[in-house]
């Protein structure tokens, strides 16, 4: 735990007791970019990874299926906060590796991607399994191979079906980026928590709250537009 506390930032308050609001905002905006980076990296990697995991989860081979089922079960059944800790401290305490201070950003990315991929895998699975068997049969009779059937017929329809669940998960991710605080990543929540302590002001929390809320408003707006775009068919 000490490592985490050391990693947490401490701002100098020697010169003036009260920091200018503009300086505070600058620091918060730096944190905002880190939060956005965690968010973007997680989505870009966990969405495709989740699809691969869902294939493993639905594999014909029972051994493969069980492995992926176990993976999903662990990822969903333990706190993300704990997973981040294990990924951050594990290499040092379990494997005896020397870890650099910048590793915490990588650790956060790995933790988020692995965790969210498990949730997305189950969403994909639900979507894929909800497809009527007639779609596969029609594709088979028309001579589509397995890859064509999935890419041209099944997947586009799955995307439409799972979009509301993906939106939910994405909104949760916006807020979950704040869990990177636990391993000292300088994201929005970590910065605002430090500022609140050093400045004895609730203002940074207000900013952080507004940031998360606006971020999610934008996410919800974009996803709604995407849903509408896919409404050209039923």
């Amino acid at each position: 735990m000490r490592r985490v506390l050391e990693a947490a930032p401490s701002f100098s308050v020697r010169r003036s007791k009260i920091m200018e609001i503009s300086i505070m905002l600058d620091k918060l905006i730096d944190g905002m970019w880190v939060s956005l980076l965690i968010f973007g990296t997680t989505l870009i990697f966990s969405l495709p990874l989740g699809l691969l995991i869902s294939f493993g989860r639905m594999a014909k081979n029972p051994a493969v299926r069980t492995i992926f089922k176990l993976y999903i079960s662990i990822m969903r059944g333990t706190p993300l906060m704990l997973q981040l800790m294990v990924i951050y401290f594990g290499p040092h305490y379990i494997l005896g590796m020397q870890i650099s201070p910048t590793y915490k950003n990588t650790a956060a990315a790995i933790g988020f991607i692995l965790n969210y991929a498990a949730y997305f895998a189950e969403i994909y699975r639900g979507g894929i399994e909800s497809m009527p068997v007639g779609q596969y049969e029609a594709a088979k009779i028309l001579g589509y191979n397995k890859i064509q059937t999935f890419m041209r017929i099944i997947f586009p329809q799955v995307v439409k079906r799972i979009l509301p669940s993906v939106t939910n998960e994405t909104i949760t991710l916006v807020k979950d980026t704040s869990l990177a605080f636990t391993i000292g990543v300088m994201e929005m929540f970590t910065v605002s928590k430090a500022l609140v302590s050093s400045q004895a002001s609730m203002l940074p929390f207000l900013f952080a709250g507004i940031f998360y809320y606006l971020f999610n408003l934008i996410v919800a707006f974009l996803m709604e537009r995407l849903e509408k775009k896919l409404n050209y068919y039923r």
């Binding site: 029609a138 017929i153 586009p156 329809q157």
Partner: peptide, 13 residues
């Protein structure tokens, strides 16, 4: 051969 299904099974998208 081709097959026409009872429930059409057209591709809705």
């Amino acid at each position: 051969f081709g097959l026409v299904f009872q429930n059409f099974n057209l591709f809705p998208h």
